[in-house]
């Protein structure tokens, strides 16, 4: 392996797996202030456009017998609607637009991020942290508004023996506050990992001897990443539903 690397130095075998996550201004310069149009902004805009195409343009026919485009929109709608109904319950349907927003946004962004030379917003800790903390604060506030101090019963496990309840309460509180961290790191980490691995394989493709293997690896990873892109959007949404269920029905 070391010999290979030595031999490859001349041909430029250098790994920059993380460069694809750099935020850069679109129109030159290096300053990134809060309003600068960057590649992050471009791909967020494209994500919104993709959501618009699928959910609005696709369903413009309003046909009773749906066209293909309309079927996709209806499928997404039914998928999230049923998820909320199954996991959280019928009383959570009022939060359906927000959960649908999360799902469609993450899904479209994950898939757009898989386009070569694109920018994956969901691989950015800043982005996923905002998404996860929005869910965390929303769920906490909903819990306190709906149940007042009864919401704290979530941490006081009445089904356990009295002696171990304080210990359980500490564990529950810690796990409650770790939720947004794991919620955001899971999404960003998955997308980062997949993209970085593809990039590493791509670097190996520069070696003639390894290139067939590398291209095969890229293809396989790309297929896996398509799956991960969907599953991570699904997992993020379903965990949001689970947390919301805790807020709406805090009894253990």
């Amino acid at each position: 392996m070391a010999d290979n690397a030595h031999a490859a130095e001349g041909t430029g075998l250098v790994f920059h797996p993380m460069d694809q996550f750099k935020v850069q201004p679109l129109f030159g310069g290096t300053d990134v202030s809060w309003y600068t149009p960057t590649n992050a902004m471009l791909w967020l805009a494209l994500t919104v456009l993709a959501v618009f195409l699928v959910m609005v343009v696709g369903t413009r026919g309003r046909a009773v017998i749906p066209s293909r485009g309309q079927s996709i929109g209806e499928l997404a709608y039914g998928f999230v609607y049923k998820m909320i109904e199954d996991v959280t319950g019928k009383d959570a349907i009022v939060y359906f637009p927000y959960i649908m927003t999360l799902f469609m946004f993450i899904l479209m962004n994950n898939f757009l991020g898989l386009i070569p030379a694109s920018f994956a917003n969901t691989a950015q800790i800043a982005v996923t942290a905002i998404l996860a903390f929005a869910v965390f604060f929303a769920v906490t506030i909903i819990g306190f508004v709906k149940h007042g101090t009864h919401f704290l019963g979530l941490f006081w496990v009445t089904s356990a023996p009295l002696a171990i309840r304080p210990v359980l309460a500490v564990i529950e509180v810690i796990s409650y506050f770790v939720r947004p961290v794991s919620h955001s790191i899971r999404l960003a980490g998955n997308i980062t990992a997949g993209h970085a691995v593809i990039k590493v394989f791509a670097a190996f493709a520069g070696l003639v001897a390894l290139s067939p293997l590398a291209i095969l690896g890229i293809t396989a990873m790309y297929g896996l990443e398509m799956l991960v892109a969907f599953i991570q959007a699904y997992v993020f949404t379903i965990l949001t539903c689970v947390y919301l269920k805790d807020a709406l029905h805090p009894s253990h």
């Binding site: 199954d86 899971r186 997992v235």
Partner: peptide
């Protein structure tokens, strides 16, 4: 299946932490 994916997500998150 929802439970399955939640379980997988929790198990996988810890691997992602070590990757991080």
């Amino acid at each position: 299946t929802a439970t399955l994916f939640i379980g997988i997500a929790f198990a996988e998150a810890l691997g992602i932490f070590s990757f991080l």
